[in-house]
């Protein structure tokens, strides 16, 4: 059972079951807990290959036991997402905890990654259960539909769900009075049907300078 002890601390009540959590994110617990390191990238050969590729950016641990365990990471806001068979795509560094029963994997998202430097890979979470994702400041859920496509700064993107197509677009022309560069900034355009989680903050991006 996932519940928010505060907007920045996740409490998980456990009765012998297990959760997967970002390594080092446990801040306190009562009862008896055991910690085991897991490797990211999913199971099997494909997982092994992605682990190699990602340089094990996503290091997870398994926490199992009886009692309440508290998780937090660098004062990030925590958002709970309930999954009923669908897939959640989340920027790997923003995953905090998932139910032990959810499958995690890694997908390659070259387009967005290319602009970010830090996120060539996105973690996918599938199955039935709860996941806790992090954002710098509380994330906003923005709905995408046929009528309302959405454009997002790559640095503010946290996660998305649904049947969405992503494309890169350059939206800005910089020309200043000083005659400085004609640089362009890149944005991600989402079309289709789903929701996008956006944080009120921007990671450093190479090209998302608007």
């Amino acid at each position: 059972m996932f519940r928010l002890q505060s907007s920045k601390v996740l409490a998980v009540d456990m009765t012998g079951d297990a959760v997967k959590a970002k390594n080092g994110s446990m801040v306190a617990y009562d009862g008896e807990m055991a910690f085991k390191k897991l490797s990211g990238g999913g199971e099997g050969l494909r997982g092994m290959v992605t682990r190699r590729l990602t340089g094990e950016q996503m290091t997870l641990m398994e926490v199992k036991g009886h009692g309440t365990c508290f998780f937090a990471d660098r004062a990030s806001e925590i958002n709970l997402v309930g999954l009923r068979g669908e897939t959640l795509y989340v920027e790997s560094s923003n995953l905090l905890v998932t139910d032990g029963g959810l499958r995690t994997g890694t997908t390659f998202t070259g387009m967005r990654g290319a602009s970010q430097g830090n996120g060539l890979f996105t973690t996918t979470i599938e199955g039935h259960g709860q996941a806790a994702i992090m954002s710098d400041g509380p994330a906003l859920l923005l709905r995408v539909s046929a009528q309302y496509p959405l454009t997002v700064d790559p640095g503010a993107y946290v996660a998305h769900q649904g049947n969405l197509r992503q494309s890169f677009q350059s939206g800005v022309t910089f020309r200043t009075l000083m005659g400085e560069g004609g640089g362009e900034a890149f944005q991600i355009r989402f079309e289709g049907d789903g929701v996008v989680y956006v944080q009120p903050s921007e990671r450093n991006t190479i090209a998302g300078d608007v």
Binding site: L140, L142, Y148, P149, L150, T151, V152, D153, G155, A156, G171, V172, T173, F174, R175, T176, L177, M178, G179, A185, V196, V198, Q199, P200, S201, E202, G208, D209, V210
Partner: peptide, 26 residues
């Protein structure tokens, strides 16, 4: 200020100050 837009709906254009068309506004 640059870097403060996190997302938008609709059709919005961003132009650096100094873009000829904006001279009057600036």
């Amino acid at each position: 200020q640059k870097g403060k837009m996190i997302a938008y709906y609709g059709s919005i254009e961003f132009n650096g100050i100094g873009h000829g068309r904006l001279d009057r506004l600036v």
